[in-house]
Write a protein that binds this DNA or RNA. Sequence first.
RNA 1: GCUCGAAUGGUGGAAUCGGUAGACACGAGGGACUUAAAAUCCCUUGGCUUCACGGCCGUGCGGGUUCAAGUCCCGCUUCGAGUACCA
Length: 941
Amino acid sequence: MEYNFKELEAKWKKYWADNNVYKVNVDQSKPKYYVLDMFPYPSGAGLHVGHPLGYIASDIFARYKRLNGFNVLHPMGYDAYGLPAEQYAIQTGQHPAITTDQNINRYHEQLDKIGFCFDWSREVRTCDPIYYKWTQWAFTMMFNSFYCNSCQKAQPIEKLIKHFETEGTQNLDIAQSEELTFTAAEWNAKSEKEKQETLMNYRLAYLGETMVNWCPKLGTVLANDEVVDGVSVRGGYPVVQKKMRQWCLRVNAYAQRLLDGLQTIDWSESIKETQKNWIGRSEGTEVQFSVKDSDVKFTIFTTRADTMFGVTFMVLAPESDYVAQVTTADQKAAVDEYITYVKKRTERDRISDRKVTGVFTGSYAINPFTGEAIPIWVSEYVLSGYGTGAIMAVPAHDSRDYAFAKHFNLPIIPLIEGADVSEQSYDAKEGIVSNSPRAGVKPYIDFTLNGLTIKEAIAATKKYVKEHNLGRVKVNYRLRDAIFSRQRYWGEPFPVYYKNEMPYMVPADKLPLELPEISEYKPTEDGQPPLGRAQMWAWDEKNGKIVDKALVDNKTIFPLELNTMPGFAGSSAYYLRYMDNKNEEALVSKEANGYWKNVDLYVGGSEHATGHLIYSRFWNKFLFDMGVSSTEEPFQKLVNQGMIQGRSNFVYRIKDTNTFVSLNLKDQYDVTPIHVDVNIVSNDVLDLEAFKKWRPEFETAEFILEDGKYVCGWAVEKMSKSMYNVVNPDMIVEKYGADTLRMYEMFLGPVELSKPWDTNGIDGVHKFLKKLWRVFDGGLVEAKADAKELKSLHKAIKKITSDIENFSFNTCISQFMILLNELGDLKCNKKEIFEPVVVLLTPFAPHIAEELWHQMGHDTTVLDAAWPVFDEKNLVESSFNYPISFNGKTRFMLELPLDMDKAAVEKTVLENEQTQKYIDGKTIAKVIVVPGKIVNIALKG
RNA sequence: GCUCGAAUGGUGGAAUCGGUAGACACGAGGGACUUAAAAUCCCUUGGCUUCACGGCCGUGCGGGUUCAAGUCCCGCUUCGAGUACCA
């Protein structure tokens, strides 16, 4: 009988569903293992062959773990909020929930065809109120928390209020937007509104006036990772900087823990490196400078405290509050003009032309180390968002300061012995300090750095600065707080209402606050977000419910927040929800979380390195502080699957004709390459009839063939509809079956590697499955396996087991092919051998494995079988092939027992007949024997 | 610019600790079966050289360490990824 994959796959799909084979429950008697995929955003285009790559890899691992006796949690769900559904809704007026639902159904159908072992009863959808209730809940928890630096933990805001009431800001070391100082008396004298405003400075979820990436075309704010090269990632629209009042998450407070945690998790070095850079820890010194003839003082941040004696000017960021304070009357016009110019420049302009610009403020600062008066400038190369928004410029040892100094003709003082700064600055942190202070200049303070290394000089300066109250040692992080407001409809509504213009949280027991219906999905005419159109969108504080916004009286009924949450809100804690997705009392029960803990293996794309993978780590650390999550890190091991690119095919039309010429003859003509649908091309050979039917203009096409075939050209491009290179997994499943698709996707190469999809090789794995099928079709026999057969089998068990552990699935499949070839050569059809083979195959080709398992007389699922145990004894590795070399050149191989000692090997080799031939009367100068490796004989003469 | 990673046949890719480079597969060539096709099976397939046995050269380039280097070290080249005025 033929290998009828269609029938067989349908049969087992039904069996698995009917018997709830993939349903898992907490089971204390078994060890747990949690395998998670990054859940997809269900787009309208459906899945292409690139999407399942990671899912197949994780599915293999999940099945492997299950066969090894683990209780495996392997869920799937949908990241259902997103821009495409909303934009479609704006165009068509259809509710985004409808489109989203349709897309989810299509995804589900496609996923099911591939035979994944997902426990669908645990599915989550981020747009489902019973799910986003907990997203909202976590947000209110963050609102009601602050971060304590000394105990490195989030704490309830009540604790902070108590502290303010008794001590004011004394003895506080906490994360904050700006440094505030007030006494207990001052705090107690504040009005309720003032108190609320003050608390905003500390809350982990806070309303902040921030510079945001505003995308006018999309009408919304974007996170830093949603903007690339000054345009939006989705849509590619220009993005400008704009100051807005937005919800923010104080991610920066967790910077150190996010950095430290990287050492405890098993992620690729490159992703860890990316996150390290993104967090951007830098240790430095804050130094205070006073302004000449003024009481104004300002603070700068530097990592090069050793260069205090080489400061020749100061620079403020254009947005800095100090600018207005230090600008003199006669420079005001020039400064104002400059600031106007900077405001007009977009992020994009700054990236494209990096020209030196700036303006003098008219004021001078006093260098606390030299007493010199140095000019204060304003320039866009200093950023307001980092450090203090002000720098001391040391042109001799900083290339940006150098460029500025050269452009505006400011002095440059070298501070390192032998540093030549005539052409460029000397940025390296190596060398001996000089000119600090300069020879012949009367010292302003009793302090010198001359003769020290840079490292020593930095330490000495830090010490001096601290002792003399000139500043302090400071660690800065580049990681910015996450902007959490989006001016969109299709997202989680904030559980926030405004009383006296200050935000208040909807009580936790009233959640979820459901997304209201609106008539149109675009922003309102007066520029409010879409939720401004919702009629039923006001909060009745007394009765705890949503009411008509016409009733707002600002006494008991208040307006609700009009923004919604960003895409990363729903995806930040979803892994916890899978553990207990129906719980209405908690995000996850203690029992479920106590058992499943965190994700053991997380598979997904590396493009989330600075987005989702930072936010969810932050979110989880917060929940850990709250005692909700039992583990500090959410994802223990991370594997990044590569992208599958498209492999486009071309036909070559002779200009101004309807004649197409085959690839290798095209140079004889003047041709235009035309993309052709890869689905009517097989092994780069065009199906002529299908081509004629493909599009009406090709109906009359004529062909110039080579060897009776039309050969197409090809190129690697992004997989997209317009290149006609999208390969749909359904079509592969239809033609070859799900098992072939699964094996082939793995066979393409290492999971981590990006590679073009190339259907050409798929016959290879399909042939393997057909061959395997034929062995069973011929019938198995009950007979004792011999040593050779056992050796083949155990070699495979060893290799496949270790390769799965190492996530090297392509070599597993090679090993299967080798195994089948070897067993074929041995004419082996013994059940004793093939039974473990079927179990080994289960993770890769579950349908055929299940069928063969049952054909062998088992009546439970193959997933209940046990992974074959590797037995060293069966690998008759009792001997080793020694390469025998003369004068370093390998001449022949000699098989010797492994357990022979060095002396015995040497003796045997020297007495060997072939060795004698090579020695042939010559003197042996040296014999090198490395047991189990090599014998090298050096000859003299 | 900085950080990280990669480079192996016509193609995708193997090679655990430095130990027979090119496993496995695709493609290509030849053959068997067949009226024919499909399917299946067998042989060849890194380059050069030799009637043949064999020999020589070969893992981006140039050096080095070693009995032995795709693998380790130094210096380049090219490509990819991340990041970008972060003081």
